[in-house]
Amino acid sequence: MKTVFIAVTALSLAFAGSAAAQSAGAQAQTEQDPAVSTATGDSQQPVGDTWITTKVKTELMATSGVPGTDIKVETVNGVVKLSGHVDKAQADKAASIARNIDGVKKVDTSGLMASHSRK
C-alpha cells in the first residue's frame, strides 16, 4: 500500500509541476487555437490528453479494488483507451472512473482482457 501511495504522490507532484508550466502559456494557446477543448465548469484551462491520462491513472491507482498498475491508459483527442488483464468488475470500475474525469469524451475498454480472479 505504501508503494501505491508513493506512486500516486509522485504522479501528483509531477502533474502539479507540469500544470504550473502549462498554465502560463494556456491562455495564449487558447486565444490562438479556438479548437482547444476546455473542461466543463468554470475553468477555461484546456484539458489535454496528457492531463487526462495522468488524472485517470492517478485515480485508478488511488481506488481500492482496481489494479491501477495492471491497466495501461492512453488518451487521444479525449478518447481514453484502457488495456490490461483484469476481471469484469475491475474493468467496469476502471471505465467508470475514466468516464468521470473532466475532458473525457469516450472510454474504450476493448483492450481490457478478462483474467481469473486474483486471491
Rank of each mutant, 00 (worst) to 15 (best):
K2R: 13
V4W: 04
F5D: 14
I6T: 10
I6P: 04
A7H: 05
A7Q: 14
V8Y: 12
T9E: 12
L11G: 05
L11C: 06
S12M: 07
F15Q: 09
F15N: 00
S18E: 12
A20C: 11
A21T: 01
A21F: 05
S23T: 12
S23C: 10
G25K: 14
A26S: 15
Q27H: 13
A28K: 15
E31P: 01
D33P: 03
P34M: 00
P34W: 01
A35C: 03
T38C: 00
T40K: 12
G41D: 02
S43A: 13
Q44V: 10
Q45E: 07
Q45G: 04
V47S: 06
D49I: 06
D49E: 10
W51L: 01
T53V: 03
T53E: 13
T54I: 00
E59N: 11
E59D: 13
M61Y: 01
A62S: 02
A62F: 00
T63S: 10
S64T: 07
S64P: 07
S64A: 08
G65S: 08
G68I: 07
I71P: 01
K72R: 14
K72V: 05
V73G: 04
E74S: 15
V76F: 02
N77Y: 10
V79Q: 15
L82H: 01
L82M: 04
H85N: 13
V86E: 02
D87L: 04
Q90K: 15
A91N: 13
A91I: 06
D92S: 11
K93G: 02
A95I: 00
S96Q: 14
I97L: 06
A98F: 07
R99H: 11
N100I: 02
I101L: 05
D102Y: 04
V107E: 03
D108H: 06
D108V: 00
S110P: 12
L112H: 03
A114V: 05
A114F: 04
H116M: 13
S117R: 13
S117E: 09
R118F: 01
K119Q: 10
